[in-house]
Amino acid sequence: MKKKSFYLFNIMVVTLGLLMAEMLYLQVFSPLTAEDLENKKTYMQVVALPDLALANEAMFIRHRSLTATFELFPDSPALVEYFPSTFTYKYSNTLFLTPNRITVEK
């Protein structure tokens, strides 16, 4: 094998090996252990509120899935929708009893 091909081969093997090692490491030492998951599930059973605590700048953001169908004036009529996350809430398709995406995919 020529010198440069040999180097190239080694570089490829090393990068691929690094990728594998990284994936294996994350798989084994994942930040989310089985105990953590169990804790989370217990928490969900106690509190029973959906959605994550990712956004809470306005009251219609967290548990967005539980607020009113069309949140146009949730705080006051003068408030326009301005948080990017407020635009994300779309009413469920099942509201009009058409099959939704998830049920169709199943």
Partner: peptide, 12 residues
Amino acid sequence: TNEDLKVSYQNI
């Protein structure tokens, strides 16, 4: 229902 929540997540 839970299905509605899943649809909502998908949209987000």
